[in-house]
Design a binder for these strands. Structure first.
Lengths: 126, 126, 126, 126
DNA sequence: GTGGTCTAGACCACA
DNA sequence: GTGGTCTAGACCACT
């Protein structure tokens, strides 16, 4: 199955690095399991054209995803989401762990206690 | 009272902008109320020497803090923590709000429910 | 649309900080609506060369305008006037309010009454 | 007659150049005719002590006032407001003229018409 | 001594 | 090509 740009539904904000936004959003989609393992991503040129960005920008995002083994590029065939589900699980865990660490670090820095911090979270809309 | 570098205890990491790290760490120290209002910070040249960075780098950090009214620079006299405690409170609130938003946004992206997220926080050491 | 230096027509005076003059004059041009929202400003290096100042000096002016959200800088792409027209309106109002406060304060200091001050304004050429 | 610090009632703000504030406030007091011509000002040391500033700072303010012939220093006797009333009148006119020029320049820069500007002034409290 | 502005020039990040 | 960070070092403004 090939994923089209609509499925990815990438939202770009010109004030931030484009390649990072592409990278993060694809990574999230994978981690959230919105995209089936082994699916084919749009080609670099295709996605670049749809997003109206430079192909180099998409290329760079794909390269980093490749490096993290989230996607696999098969010469002559295209780019695919990895089929190794443990990779996905690993990424998902990392993202959650990072978010938690960042949050608790900030709270510690501000001297806000665990219970107080959790209360703040419970108050919010969510 | 004059604050020395040991009190600030700045930790610099070459992978991120130096002036930002200086800025953020001083801001945290103020938000955490580790530094008395109205205290005098080390001079630009002094801190630069201790951190082994260029004075312009320290200056830039100080100028941004000055613009946010966290510190007051007085030419010929030195640099001082603001005496306006409501400014400090405001910064503190902003920092906490940002941390919360960033955390909940990530959890939503990953499709982790509120209660599950809070459980994750409760598990950790803290 | 890209703005050239002739449209900006910047006049620099060595007795005042150069970066401030650049900053103020661009801000005025935007407030006066001489520049279309979303236009691209000259690049840092380009403007520096035309004004015969160091690129860092132009950069500093751009950075302050960026912080005030009057312009948006996009790394690799250039510098653009904000498209948020309410920002512009806000700046315009602030500038007028400051001018009025400064004028009335001086008149009060000199003990010149409201009507007398207005008469002085009416006499001038304008 | 000797003027004491209470008559001058100088208000200093540490975030701005001290010598300028002293200079401006004395100049205003003279222009507003709060101080009789020929009066004796406090000595540099005396005023410095009362304001808790460095004598050099007061000295510099006095020097500039001297240069503008607003005050006269008589060796061994002290510092006096000039007795030349045309000087005072001249200063007063200059200050008013400057305030007007600055105001009208800003309004022109913003493209606000004469009548609109005057309306703005009439609206304010004053 | 303090902070503030400016230059020249290196090197990095992004499109 | 764009903007962003950093350095070394000059010179100015203020106390």
């Amino acid at each position: 199955m090939t994923i089209n740009e609509e499925t990815l539904n990438l939202q770009l904000d010109l004030s931030k690095p484009l390649y990072e936004q592409i990278l993060y959003q694809i990574r999230y989609a994978v981690a959230r399991k919105d995209i089936a393992l082994g699916s084919r991503l749009p080609s670099v040129r295709e996605l670049a054209q749809q997003l109206r960005v430079n192909p180099n920008t998409v290329m760079r995002a794909y390269q980093e995803l490749n490096r993290d083994e989230i996607i696999e590029t098969r010469r002559g065939q295209g780019t695919f989401i990895t089929t190794k589900s443990h990779k996905i699980q690993h990424i998902r865990n990392n993202m959650a762990a990072e978010a938690i660490k960042s949050f608790t670090d900030t709270m510690k820095e501000l001297g806000i206690e665990r219970q107080a911090a959790i209360s703040l979270l419970e108050e919010g809309e969510w």
